[in-house]
Design a protein around this nucleic acid. Sequence first.
DNA 1: TACAATCACTAAATCGTTTTAGCTAAAACG
DNA 2: CGTTTTAGCTAAAACGATTTAGTGATTGTA
Lengths: 336, 336
Amino acid sequence: MHKSVTIKTIAEAVGMSLSGVSKALNDYPDINEETKKLVISKAVELGYTPNLNARNLVKKTSNSIGIIIKDTDTSYGDLIKDLSRVAEINGLNLLIADSDRNRDIEIKHVKSMLESRVKGIVIVPVSGDISEIKKTVSFRVPVVFLGGWVTSPKENVVAQDNEYGTNMAMDYLFGLGHRDIAYVSDKVRSNSNQVKIDVYMRRMLEAGLEPAVFVDEGSGLIESGIRQTSKMLDSGRRFTAVLASKDLVAVGAMEEIRTRGLSVPDDISVMSFGGSEISSVPMINLTTIAEPKRDLAENLIRILLAQAEAGHDAMPKHYFAKPELIERKSCRHVSA
Amino acid sequence: MHKSVTIKTIAEAVGMSLSGVSKALNDYPDINEETKKLVISKAVELGYTPNLNARNLVKKTSNSIGIIIKDTDTSYGDLIKDLSRVAEINGLNLLIADSDRNRDIEIKHVKSMLESRVKGIVIVPVSGDISEIKKTVSFRVPVVFLGGWVTSPKENVVAQDNEYGTNMAMDYLFGLGHRDIAYVSDKVRSNSNQVKIDVYMRRMLEAGLEPAVFVDEGSGLIESGIRQTSKMLDSGRRFTAVLASKDLVAVGAMEEIRTRGLSVPDDISVMSFGGSEISSVPMINLTTIAEPKRDLAENLIRILLAQAEAGHDAMPKHYFAKPELIERKSCRHVSA
DNA sequence: TACAATCACTAAATCGTTTTAGCTAAAACG
DNA sequence: CGTTTTAGCTAAAACGATTTAGTGATTGTA
């Protein structure tokens, strides 16, 4: 490790003081323009790279924010690209960690990010019980929760507007003439899944129809779809559409429907929530309520920065992103 | 922002010197065990969180490594979970950025990571021309390149062993009795795509068979698969199997084959490289040569840390991870 | 009893910046 | 010509740790 180039190196090279060089590099008004040019050119020539550790130490700020995601494999993982874009625009670095659906690992990451003095933390939490996270952070930096786990109005929350999304889905299916619509869901762990079910129920009842909810208790998204769709098909009632809680649940539903020799969408329409890449492939071609990822990313960072600015006595902020309906080939008019 | 708890706060609380407290917290041997206990309990009580900026500044080290990925949407994005796991084991933080397939953004991220004084950088580069990256880093920290773009023996490279993988694929298809095998590829941009083609050609010729390579020039993975498979089907020669350069290319191939009223795998077997989540869904169910992501992640970090340890005069290191064949339902014995 | 060794600390330098306060010389003013 | 302004710097403290080189008291040894 040969001698690294610091502000001092530059100062010696141009025969100025440390503070003079620092000011020149930071474009202070009380430094002559010619001097600034000289200093900057010397800095470039020497290959000077400012040390952010030193800068952040004295300025008591940081240019990075932490992102802790319970599982980067799920839909929230796709968000990284959008977060990265938005972060770059705001001159932020992203410290990203995967908590592997494990609370202990999650807390370790929180601690480690606090040690790095991040500006704030975005968390897709392992579960809805965030007390330990709150305790660990203890108001040192703002935290924004992403997704349907956290519902407390006292927290900063960014999530998809599932009420809106589910209404949109029901409008769409009703519009196609469907009246026998089943709701097929994987295990209900988060609030978002519950909201979807509630809205589905309400809309069915309001339309004078009998709701039929099939919720799986086991694990596996595709498997849940297969199991519950199988139950649905065996239920005796003839459904013309299924609304699935997630894209992969819908994939399972389609699989089961086709295995039984029925057609999607000719016999049964299938629709879901997600908008993942999988929903777009030709053999699947799923009509889906797509998560507005860019919108989520933008508001996540916007709120985080706003709260960092405001200090920890700021009012909690909420943002619910409106999902978008992507119409593909898995739904059609109900046949008379 | 109320007064933050530093080592000084603790020192005053227990009536010791700064250095004493620091040593106690770092478990130095020349501090009494009782004193250590006292200091640590006081630190916990006060909610002390060490400031890594300060620590890294004086220790001239850092606990984070940078990851720059050209596109977190592609297969390399799945890697984040594994990288995060391996990083956690090694006590490292991950600074992750997406360069959006843009060289300027990539370089900006490199600079920013150097300013953060990362231990080293892992890059899935935008293109094979890495001269600007090298110039920017100029041996300040080790860089490990991931993927098939970089082939120079002077660089640290971790990649999939495509020679091995392609041989495995050909062995498998030959083993099923296929002799009329077409190779369908998206646009050849990286070395890995070329290696696959070369090995395919060699194996076909060695077996006394006529190779048939269909390479798309346009963009889009699924689209490439559709276009080239269409060409293949129109070529006059009757193929019994297609080997696709990527999972999504294979999805396009399957789509086109089925659109023509043929069956996969009954009429034509389809195999590909990838092992992505999409290959596993029931309606696709693709036999694929899967990228060994955990293996890649482990060796990426292993090599990075080794090079950081060794200093910049170390010999470049290479690691080629052996992919794995995942047998599903898209291939079958050729029918007589 | 004198001397070295050990124990358990403290003092002070250091890392690379930023920033406040102060200083000097030249310019402007009355 | 003496005084105030201004431009363009410099000096030094500060940020929060780590670490080297002591230091004083106690214990062990000859």
